[in-house]
């Protein structure tokens, strides 16, 4: 028996909106730790890892580890029917072939339940080692989204370079080139407006903008994004999910032949 009650149901809507364009079907894994997901995009270039810790739920009952195979666009369709302020409860029996999403309005005057068919998904689970990063950039998530969107009108790839000058996002295309430099800046009114660059070594890596733009669908989840870079390793683009977890996108770099 699984029963997870999330007061901030709107968070789950935002999580699904940030996943559904990247991944079609995925297994949600429920354990005592929390509600998690790991999935790759269909071309195995990007990977997403979601964790919502059990403590973040108002009620978290998971009698035994369960894997719920869901079509993410169908799940997003169902969650779209919840109000942004609704309390969302996810329920499933141990041997269930469906999952129930229950939506309660904040003042309890409307209660809805949606039952979605589960699916068997052969998922590949990858072990992600802890890595030391050469550079970690924290910046406003909306700024990062704007940069990725702007650069993708000019080129297909972005070179992200971190030096002591700051972090540089560069692209080139048929019409020309573009470079955007963001400097370390903590003298801001609000902490979420800061750009914090921690650099052990200079690093420069090239990535497909199509995927970066897909990751920025998670922007409504968090004011800040963390971009962790190391030579010849996938970049990690991380958004916090309130105080309860994170969504991490990994993207393999393009390497010079």
């Amino acid at each position: 028996m699984l029963e997870l009650r999330l007061v901030q149901g709107g968070l789950l809507k935002k999580v699904l909106d940030s996943l559904k364009d990247l991944v079609n079907d995925a297994n949600f894994d429920c354990s005592a730790t929390g509600f998690s997901l790991q999935a790759m995009d269909s071309s195995h270039v990007a990977l997403v890892a979601l964790l919502l810790r059990s403590e973040g739920f108002e009620h978290y009952r998971c009698d035994r580890n369960l894997s719920l195979g869901m079509n993410l666009s169908n799940m997003a369709k169902m969650l779209k029917c919840a109000g942004n302020d609704d309390i969302v409860t996810i329920k499933a029996d141990d041997a269930a072939d469906s999952v129930t999403f229950m939506f309660e309005s904040p003042n309890q005057d409307k209660i809805a339940d949606f039952d979605m068919k589960l699916m068997d998904i052969d998922s590949e689970h990858l072990g992600i080692p802890e890595a030391e990063f050469q550079a970690i950039v924290r910046m406003p998530s909306a700024e990062f989204a704007r940069i990725c969107k702007d650069l993708s009108t000019i080129g297909d790839t972005v070179v992200i370079s971190v030096t002591k000058e700051g972090v540089k996002f560069s692209t080139r295309g048929d019409i020309g080139t573009a470079n955007i430099v963001c400097r370390h800046n903590t003298s801001v009114d609000k902490p979420e407006e800061a750009t914090i660059i921690e650099m052990e070594e200079t690093v420069s890596l090239t990535f497909a903008l199509r995927y970066m733009n897909s990751f920025t669908k998670a922007t409504p989840l968090a004011n800040q994004v963390t971009i962790s870079l190391s030579s010849d390793l996938p970049v990690v683009v991380e958004y916090k999910v309130a105080e309860m977890g994170h969504i991490r996108f990994y993207l393999a770099p393009k390497i010079e032949e």
Binding site: H44, V45, L126, G127, T157, P234, A252, K254
Partner: peptide, 14 residues
């Protein structure tokens, strides 16, 4: 010319 690496070239199956 750049070659797109795959995630599976970095992380092993667990």
């Amino acid at each position: 010319k750049r070659h797109q690496k795959l995630i599976t070239e970095f992380f092993n199956h667990s």
